[in-house]
Amino acid sequence: MNIFRLAGDLSHLLAIIILLLKIWKTRSCAGISGKSQVLFAIVYLTRYLDLFTTYISLYNSIMKIVFIAASGATLYLMYVKFKATYDHNHDSFRIEFLLIPCVILALIINHDFTVMEILWTFSIYLESVAILPQLFLVSKTGEAESITSHYLFALGSYRALYLLNWIYRYMAESHYDLIAIFAGVVQTILYCDFFYLYITKVLKGKKLQLPA
């Protein structure tokens, strides 16, 4: 565990907590893409199946369980408890356009042709693009609440910090994972435009509003 990895995990955890608190406190999931949240739930469920097969550490197991539980809670709040506030009309991204290519890519490019390994690979590819419905929703409405922006910033920072972690691990352990690196780079690039707006607008106290 190095500092980049720990900071990445904490940033990921912070993002999930911010999202849950936002929905809970405002009693509303307006501005949040349910489709991105469904994709994240699929990501956690397919990646963390190894909870049942491999024990790594207490930290590892607890974080996995927290991510799965928080993801389930978010879906419950969005699709059951505060369903009336869910922005159906703007959340119109077709997720099959992400799911199908990720399944195909995971079947072709993977470390090992086994069920667990293909599901892990699929989850890595899917995670890299899972935020697209959310970014699509923001671009459709043309704005995002500050709290939603903080959520997106924390979530985007997490994979960027993992990239630093992988550079560190390559230097310290001469070990690297091309699938994770490739997907992590794609994932981070997708946030770049948002990072720019976050730093130039949200941090200066302005609302994140896209130019018309």
């Binding site: 990895r5 995990d9 990921h12 190894d50 491999t54 790594i56 550490s57 590892n60 974080m63 996995k64 991510f67 490019i109 993977n110 470390h111 090992d112 892990w120 993992y162 691990r169 070990h175 690297y176 994972d177 091309l178 699938i179 994770a180």
Partner: peptide, 10 residues
Amino acid sequence: FGKLRFKDEL
């Protein structure tokens, strides 16, 4: 693509 993944990562 060999078996190079970090199984300890989240």
